[in-house]
């Protein structure tokens, strides 16, 4: 069996402003996650460019992309993606510690981020001891700990119940409004629109339409 080349994205151009909460929506296979991964420098596009602060990130070597992800981006994944051997606090602490400074400073930053998502009392618990909603909030705290400019969230509440989904979306809205952090989120849920500033609708790898909306 050979490999089959699939054009996941085609002629997609968009930009994200500071403090904007933007969602990518579309049917399965429309290229939502691929677009998020390319924008988040997780997956290099075969053609095209990704600009951040006016700099073409696709030209950077892998270590510089990693540094950009560490210092300027935050990530929240559908499956939480916490390190199972680290406690909630340590999961949040890890990127802060890697970014520089002493472990004690990173620990303080992690406490602050955990407090931001209301999970200080669960700090010493391992991921397996937390509920799905708590794990996702830890993931959000981890994404926030280095005070990023953009958070990339790939269906962050797909595995959560409605109450926890609401908590995560409200948290994202607050982050955008108070911390002026941009969020690019992949979602299927039309109900999420009430929290969003903009929706980019994809179909077969192309932008079908963009919907600007105010916060309701």
């Amino acid at each position: 069996m050979g490999t089959v080349a699939v054009r996941a994205l085609d002629d997609v151009t968009f930009s994200l402003s500071g403090g904007e909460f933007c969602a990518i929506m579309g049917p399965s296979g429309s290229g939502k996650s691929t677009l998020l991964h390319c924008a988040g420098l997780l997956d290099p596009p075969t053609a095209g460019n990704v600009f951040y602060n006016g700099m073409d990130m696709t030209l950077l070597p892998e270590w510089q992309k990693a540094e950009t992800r560490l210092f300027s981006f935050g990530f929240v994944f559908q499956e939480y993606a916490l390190i199972p051997e680290l406690t909630a606090l340590e999961n949040v602490l890890l990127p802060a510690f890697a970014a520089g400074g002493r472990e004690s400073e990173a620990r303080d930053a992690a406490w602050t981020a955990l407090a931001h998502v209301g999970l200080q009392d669960r700090a010493s618990h391992l991921p397996r001891e937390l509920s799905g909603g708590e794990q996702q909030r830890v993931a959000v705290a981890r994404g926030l700990v280095n005070r990023p400019r953009i958070i990339f969230a790939d269906e962050p509440h797909a595995n959560l119940d409605s109450e926890n989904s609401r908590l995560i979306l409200e948290l994202f809205r607050t982050i955008c409004d108070q911390d002026k952090i941009s969020i690019l989120m992949v979602t299927h849920e039309e109900e999420d629109r009430q929290y969003l500033d903009r929706v980019i609708r994809l179909f077969d790898g192309r932008i079908q339409k963009e919907e600007e909306r105010g916060v309701t």
Partner: peptide, 11 residues
Amino acid sequence: TMKAIGINRET
């Protein structure tokens, strides 16, 4: 995941 959040490969 560690690579995704910016931990470099050598670490």
